[in-house]
Amino acid sequence: MSYTVIVFVKQVPDTQNITGEAMKPDGTVNRAALPAIFNPEDLNALELGIQLKERYGAKLIVGTMGPPNAAEVLRESLYRGADETILLTDRAFAGADTLATSYALSCCAKKIGKFDLILCGRQAIDGDTAQVGPQLAEKLKIPQVSYVENVEELTKKRVRARRSIEGGFEVVECPLPALMTVVEANDPRPSNVKKIMLYKKAKTRTELSKAHSDANYTDAELLKEEEDNLRKVGLWIEELSASDIGADVERIGLKGSPTKVKNIQSVVLTGADFKVVDPTEAGVNSLMHELIEDHTLG
C-alpha cells in the first residue's frame, strides 16, 4: 500500500427520477417521497479510486458529511472496495452551503493527515453546483484537476490525468497531493456479494449504541469492547463530530455559510394555454400559414 486516496461522497435525494408526488402542494419538496441514493458521479469517483488501488496499491478512505443515515453510502463504498470509512455528522454541520461544506471536509482531510489524492464526483444531483471539489482543493491549498475521465499514470510525485474540456479533452500532469473531480466516464462496478455479506455488519457508534439501547443494554464497557472488536475486523465506520475534526464552529453549518436562501418557488405547470392545431392537412396548413404571416418562418 503505497498511496492514500480519499474519496468524498454524498448521499442525495434521487432528483433524476422525480414524480409528481415529490412536490407538496405548498411548493416544498417532499423528501419522504424521494429515495436517498449514492450521488451518481461520486460512484464514478469511487470507481476511479478502486481502479487506482488495483493498479498501484492504495489505501482507499471514503468520507461523507451528512445525517446519521448517510452511513448507508459508506457501507455501499465498503461493498465496492473501500478500506476505511468516515462519517462526519453533527447538528452543527446542518444548513451548510458549499463554502462551509468544503471547510468541514478540509478539516476531515487534515485529520486524516497524509494523503496523495482526493477524488470527488464533479457535482451532486441535488444542487448541481460542482463547487465543493474546487473549494476543498483551495482550502487545502492543493492543485485541482476538474472533469477527470481517467488517470493515465500515477507516480510517487505526480499524477497524469485525462480530463474533459468543452469540445474535447486535455491531458494534464500535476504534483501530489492533488484533488480531482471525476465525471461520468467509467462504469462503476456493482457491489461485491462477498463484501456485502461481510460489511453489512459495519456500524457507526450511533448505530451500535442504538442497537444496544434497542436491546436494553446500557453497559458502557460492553459497548467499548464491541467497538474495539468491530475496529479489529474492519467493520467500524468512524463517526466524527465538528469538534473531533477541530472545525471552527463559526465556519461550519448555517453560520459558516455566506449564501442564504431568500425564497423557493416550485416550478408549477401553468395551465395549458396553447392553440390546438388539428393533426390534419387543413390544421397543419393553417399553422404554417400563420407562422409565415407573422414572419416566424420564411
Partner: peptide
Amino acid sequence: ATNKGRELGPRVASELMCGLTAD
C-alpha cells in the same frame, strides 16, 4: 457557467471567503 467558469469561480470564491451561487 461554462466548464472553465465552474472550476475557476469556486477556487476564487473560496480563497476570498465569499459566497458563490452556481448556474
